[in-house]
């Protein structure tokens, strides 16, 4: 029997596909829809201490394989989030809580406020490329800041901690090691790339209201594969490969590079809510053709020999 069941940070997943943060994850209703469409686990839209309105529209658009967004972490803040996510059991698959902050204390405050929500893990993005005060724009992606924030979060929760990195980091393996050393249980590799910009040539104005935005979708798959491959050799904790996964082929490739979990966000835009079922079936079809019985036989094989 071919199986793509996956054990990730103690979560028993029916498959390794995890809804990435910020895509449909704003309510229990929307995440239940994604779970019903075959995701092994889901991640909530990132939550900050205070409410954030985010950037004005247009906040996202696509040019073929390139998807761009500058949502700007719009979210209702931790107090409202506590109400919204009070019945996450209803979703039916493990739920990862994504928490953001402008400084280490903020991450801790949000985690404490949400401590009664039954999350299965906490994800800490230090890597958004288009929101002032957060992620790359606030220097959270350096080895020092990554170590400091991870350390603070480690003290605040017993749940597994996933640190989400940016492919932009020039010293990526050092950042990953810093997170591991500070107590992270896994690395999510990674966030959107860029930022990039596209200008409407008739009006002469950037299309995104925030002018610049992170790039996701199939265009970034090769960079994600390379980043996963690089950090796999330098850390022992497991990796979620996120960035561009759209097909079963992409998923298998990411696992060969060393990913144990697979984040899927923009894939929903390209193939619909049931992209999870589609990818899972494509993975199984390929495994059948190649005579593989489980994912263990695939993970990290690109590093052998």
């Amino acid at each position: 029997m071919i199986t793509i069941k996956s054990d990730f940070l103690g979560m028993k997943l029916s498959n390794p596909l995890i809804l990435a943060s910020g895509i449909m994850g704003i309510s229990v209703g929307s995440m239940k829809k994604i779970a019903d469409n075959g995701a092994g686990a889901v991640t909530i839209k990132s939550i900050s201490k205070e409410e954030r309105l985010g950037h004005n529209n247009p906040t996202m658009f696509s040019f073929g394989d390139v998807f761009m967004n500058a949502v700007g972490y719009s979210n209702p803040g931790m107090i409202e989030a506590k109400k919204e996510f009070s019945d996450i059991d209803r979703i039916g698959v493990p739920v990862i809580g994504s928490v953001i902050g402008t400084k280490a204390d903020d991450f801790v405050a949000v985690i404490e406020e949400l401590k009664d929500i039954k999350f299965d893990a906490i994800e800490i993005p230090l890597s958004c490329p288009h929101t002032p005060g957060f992620g790359v724009l606030a220097g959270q992606g350096t080895p020092e800041a990554t170590y400091r924030i991870t350390k603070a979060v480690r003290k605040a929760t017993r749940l597994p901690i996933i640190i989400k990195l940016s492919a932009n980091a020039p010293d990526l393996t050092i950042v990953a090691k810093a997170a591991e050393k500070a107590g992270a249980d896994a690395i999510n590799m990674g966030n959107t790339h860029g930022p990039g910009m596209r200008i409407d040539i008739d009006s002469g104005k950037p299309i995104l209201d925030f002018k610049v935005g992170g790039i996701s979708g199939p265009a970034i798959t090769p960079v994600t594969v390379r980043c996963v491959y690089d950090i796999y050799e330098s850390i022992k904790i497991p990796i979620i490969g996120t960035g561009g996964i759209t097909t079963g082929r992409d998923a298998i490739e990411m696992m060969m590079a060393g990913a144990l979990g697979l984040g899927v966000g923009t894939g929903i835009y390209y193939r619909g809510f049931d992209v999870f079922k589609k990818i899972a079936n494509e993975m199984k079809d390929w495994m059948k053709k190649k005579g593989h019985l489980s994912l263990k036989e695939i993970i990290g094989v690109a590093h052998e020999g």
């Binding site: 994850g25 309510s27 906040t59």
Partner: peptide, 17 residues
Amino acid sequence: MKCGFGVCGQCMCGDKV
């Protein structure tokens, strides 16, 4: 609505996108 194409989740009404 923000995206208009089923990505942001802003337009949920109960279980409907």
